[in-house]
Design a protein around this nucleic acid. Structure first.
Lengths: 212, 212
DNA sequence: CAAGACACCAACCGACCGGTCAGTCCATGC
DNA sequence: GCATGGACTGACCGGTCGGTTGGTGTCTTG
């Protein structure tokens, strides 16, 4: 992939290098010199294409979020039962954040710097889109009586996204925990988590989750 | 020993200022000058007490984690049914991370910088202790047949801690989401989340969670 | 009191920071 | 042929970075 990187035009090379470095080390820890070197361009050229460091950061966040949102839009959209859709959404979401590690880290970092800060809107955008899709699926299920009426769809959405994000965030840490045996297997993790959630949100009387 | 008192005074002032600034802005964005000014000491004095910036950061993390771990040790320890203990643990954990915002942010930041980095062990320490306590409670409940045998306690522990952490991390963001009405009320949030989890991990046949 | 240990600080250092500038290169259009 | 203008660069700017130096005042100990 370095060959590809060299072939592309300067702006996209700069954006790619900046995204990688910002995600890995954070905004303040990355110098324009480092980005220039990684992108194979001069520092002055970066300032030619982007007004300043902040604008470069915003551009990185913007393109990354646009890409991410585009993929999220398709999550859980296929046909299938409510449970299948929800299960598939969770699995796809977990896969997505694992496949797009850089973007996920970028947004998590941005969320952490929560002051009157730079790219807040983009974090809200991606987070909100995830949230919206999920709540939509859940509301629909609730209308069809496939999940309890007395639960808050937003609550369930947060649980699903939250456990996925925590899996992403801490997977390297609890890889060494003796109690944890799903650290290397997001599929196992996602299946087990949704098993619990689905059972937890079933309507009170139903017992239709018996499998074998 | 008045000398020790004086020393501890300046050192603790430096540690407090550093903890606040590191938590708010991250390691690289905080200069020793800023810490010195916030602590009411000279920069040279900081270097007198701490070998370098990294050691100061480690010291901050160490004291913060020690304090945090001490409190966690008491979570969910009181008498009560399995469900009560679990519910109380979740509520106490959420309260804890909200009360100790600085430390939580500090550790989350450190988790994000996952390379061959500085304070990894402390993040593992706090995270692991939370995890250990929860898994312990869950294992006990499993032994007594109060939750399904076919679930992984570590999975449930991650779900509880994960949703709490995500609540902490994103509460400012989804405060503006129309779908969310628990943003300002961690108690409501914790109660609703545990309602779902508890129902999801009940043994297959039981129906003892009907509302009174 | 002398000597030393210790807390503390102003001034300073080289390195590097984000950002600027004058100028080169080169494709385009007249 | 030649003017225009965007892409691009090396050299440079003021300022800040983490860290050091040389020293002052204060307390303890003999």
């Amino acid at each position: 992939m370095p060959a590809e990187l060299i072939e592309r035009d300067a702006v996209s090379r700069i954006l790619a290098a900046a995204r990688e470095l910002f995600a890995e080390h954070g905004f303040d820890a990355v110098s324009m010199n480092a980005i220039a070197e990684a992108a194979g361009a001069s520092k002055a050229n970066i300032f030619h294409h982007f007004k300043n460091k902040d604008e470069l950061y915003l551009a990185v966040l913007k393109t990354a979020c646009a890409n991410s949102c585009e993929q999220i839009e398709r999550f859980g959209q296929d046909e299938g039962s409510f449970e299948q859709r929800l299960e598939r959404y969770a699995a796809e979401h977990l896969n997505h954040i694992l496949d797009n590690e850089q973007v996920t880290r970028l947004i998590q970092r941005d969320l952490l710097d929560n002051g009157p800060r730079r790219g807040r809107q983009f974090a809200e955008q991606v987070f909100g889109q995830n949230f919206g899709r999920l709540v939509e699926i859940l509301r629909e299920g609730q209308l069809r009586g496939e999940l309890r009426q007395d639960i808050d769809p937003a609550q369930v959405a947060l649980m699903i996204i939250g456990t996925n994000l925590t899996f992403f965030q801490a997977r390297e840490v609890f890889r060494h925990f003796p109690d944890v045996n799903f650290a290397g297997s997001p599929e196992t993790y996602s299946r087990m988590a949704m098993d619990i959630v689905l059972r937890g949100i079933q309507p009170h009387g139903t017992r239709n989750a018996e499998k074998e």
